[in-house]
Structures are given as structure tokens and as C-alpha cells.
Design a protein around this nucleic acid. Structure first.
Length: 333
DNA sequence: CCAACCGATACCTTAGCGTT
DNA sequence: AACGCTAAGGTATCGGTTGG
């Protein structure tokens, strides 16, 4: 009697079939099934491979990624580390990114760091996967930290905190902001308020510096710099003082929406009474009532760059990638 | 008798090695 | 080259033991 056909080893009815079930049906050892189904070229005769494929199909066998990860110490899991997902522009971006990751046959795990400054402790307690790769949006993490935490060298930094060993994509915000300020000046803007996000972030610091420098070059006076937090609420509550400036520059579209509603309540409408500029260029179709002039980059290019990294990290340019931004004219400018 | 603790085992797959 | 056996990987759970 075939010793692999003991009742004890047969999986329970209703349970998802395992590699052993396939092996039993195909009349081969489990290791042969593993090889036959492996994407790598491993020695299996054509005849047995065929039997395995037929048996797997018949049973509806699906590989168990967790068990596979247990055996290989790696898993086709991509960790995406974000601060939070409250900004409207995040929805577009992450939806497309998750779609792309899944199209590559990988799964994504999103880790929300929130405002937790102690990312190290946070991640250590929440996760010990050896992931295939990590994509870092959150600016609370630096490259070395992430490599260590996820036991992976495939770390893509999108937050500016990369080091010599890491892969990174940066967004050239300067180009789009200069376009925007130049445009504003051409429309007669001479003074403005700047509503910023969390200024502890490196990306935000760079962004703020770009606004200041472009305004200085074009001769626009930043009368007021207001510290917000990217949220609609912080736009709604931003204090512009007695006189509304010619223009309001916001470092996120969501804050610009808040500003628009705040000033609308005072009977002021852009672009008639002031010019309003956001940042991120959220999909206009989703928020028709807020057709805010903005700075943005090509999301498809950005996503494609991330996916190319996930597909072949070794081939990713060592010098990193830079995605340019541009001014996107809509109706509030 | 019960709680606390500890070691053994099951889970599933694959890498590595020895055999045919 | 093809094949099959075995160990290993991390964690939850089970079962047994110990101490109070």
C-alpha cells in the first residue's frame, strides 16, 4: 500500500487542498508538485509535470503563500508604509498602486503609521514579515530602519529619507511650483497667503522653500504663512486676518477646498475675488465642485516607476528617479 | 483542583542532499 | 537528469507537568 495514502494524511473534507493532496492524486512526491508548479526551472519530467498540473487543476489547488513564505523566508508581499489616508489625493494614488501591485501577482499590506514618531517600536510590534519589498511614503521612517525592520534590501523611499544603499523616487516639486507662481504673477497677484502642511516633514520643508523662493523671484509677497495639516478642516479654519490676500497658495488640494468653503461663506469666490491654488491635482472628475488650480505630476508615470521597482529592483536606476511636476490650470486660478 | 508554565506538534511548502 | 526524503521556517494550540 502506498504509504502516502494514509487516512491521517488526507486533508479534511471542506479544507483547502494542499500540495500533499495534489501529490497523492498525481501519484508523485509533494516535492515534485512543488517543483512542477515553481516558476523557477527545476528538474521534473514532462510527464510528471503534466500529471501534477492536471491534478492541481482538478482539485482547484492554490498555493498557500504563507506556508511558502515560511519555507522560503520571503513572501510576495509588498509593504506600503503611509502616514495616513485622509488626503483626497491619496485615494486616487493608492487605489491605482494596489491595482498595479496585484496585477504583478503580489499582495500589498498597508501599514498606517499615523502620527506615530516611534515607527521603529510601532512596526516591530505590528509586523515581522520578511516582505519582498517595502514602499515608504511615510516621512517618519528612514531607509536603514525600514531595511532592518522588513528584512529586505528592496526598499523604495518616496519620502526623501533615502541613503546611499536605498532606491528612491523624488518628485521635482520646484518645477511645478515655479510654473504656478509665474502664472499667478501674470494674473496680477502681488501678495499671497501660504497655507502649509506639517512642517516637520522633509518633503513639506522643501515644498515650502520652493514657494518662498519662487515668490521672491517673481516679486510676490507672502504676507502670511499659516500652518495647517493638509486637512480640509485646517483650510476651513485658516486665519487670513482682516483682508483676504490676492491669492492663497495651499500645499494640498484638500486644504484649498477648506479655504474655498471658508471664503465662500464670506461671499468671496475664486477667481473673481481671489486666486486659489492647491497642490496634488486630485482627479477633477471626483470633486467637480472644487475645480481647483493646482500643481501635479503624472500619476501614471509615478505608479509605473514604483511598479518597475517592485518587478525588478536590481534594474532600478541607482541614481533614483525624479518625476517632474507642472502647473495644472483649472478654474480657481 | 487550578493556574502557570513548558515542550511537542501541526500547519504547508521548499531547499538541499542523497539515491536511482 | 529525475526523483524522493527530510529538515526547517514561525506561531498557535495541545497536552502534560509542576507548584500553590
Amino acid at each position: 500500500m502506498d504509504k502516502t495514502d494514509t487516512p491521517a494524511k488526507r486533508s479534511k473534507p471542506g479544507k483547502r487542498p494542499t500540495i500533499s493532496d495534489v501529490a497523492r492524486l498525481a501519484g508523485v512526491a509533494p516535492a515534485i508538485v512543488s517543483r512542477a508548479l515553481s516558476p523557477q526551472r527545476r528538474p521534473v519530467s514532462a510527464e510528471k509535470k503534466e500529471r501534477v498540473l492536471k491534478a492541481a487543476d482538478e482539485l482547484g489547488y492554490r498555493q498557500n503563500p504563507l506556508a511558502r513564505g515560511l519555507a522560503t523566508q520571503s513572501i510576495d508581499l509588498v509593504a506600503i508604509i503611509i502616514n495616513h489616508m485622509t488626503d483626497l489625493s491619496d485615494l486616487d494614488l493608492f487605489d491605482s498602486l494596489l491595482d498595479g501591485v496585484q496585477m504583478l501577482g503580489k499582495q500589498a499590506i498597508m501599514i498606517r503609521v499615523g502620527s506615530n514618531q516611534r515607527i521603529d517600536e510601532f512596526l516591530r510590534n505590528s509586523l515581522s514579515y520578511h516582505v519582498h519589498a517595502a514602499v515608504v511614503f511615510s516621512d517618519f521612517a528612514d531607509a536603514g530602519e525600514v531595511r532592518e525592520l522588513f528584512h529586505s534590501d528592496n526598499v523604495l523611499m518616496l519620502n526623501g529619507r533615502f541613503d546611499a544603499q536605498s532606491h528612491y523616487i523624488t518628485i521635482d516639486e520646484d518645477s511645478g511650483i515655479r510654473d504656478l507662481i509665474r502664472f499667478a504673477r501674470s494674473r496680477g497677484v502681488s501678495s499671497a497667503a501660504l497655507l502649509t502642511g506639517r512642517s516637520s516633514s522633509i518633503v513639506e520643508q522643501t515644498r515650502i522653500a520652493a514657494y518662498r523662493s519662487a515668490c521672491a523671484i517673481e516679486g510676490i509677497e507672502i504676507q502670511r504663512e499659516i500652518s495647517g495639516d493638509y486637512s480640509y478642516q485646517s483650510g476651513l479654519e485658516a486665519d487670513f486676518g482682516a483682508a483676504t490676500p490676492d491669492a492663497v497658495f495651499c500645499t494640498s488640494d484638500t486644504m484649498a477646498m477648506g479655504v474655498m468653503d471658508q471664503l465662500r461663506a464670506q461671499g468671496k469666490h475664486p477667481p473673481r475675488d481671489y486666486s486659489l491654488f492647491g497642490f496634488d491635482a486630485i482627479e477633477r472628475g471626483n470633486f467637480g465642485a472644487y475645480d481647483i488650480s493646482s500643481v501635479g505630476f503624472d500619476r501614471a508615470d509615478f505608479i509605473q516607476a514604483i511598479l518597475s521597482f517592485l518587478q525588478e529592483p536590481e534594474a532600478f536606476p541607482e541614481t533614483g528617479l525624479c518625476i517632474p511636476t507642472r502647473y495644472i490650470a483649472r478654474s480657481t486660478g
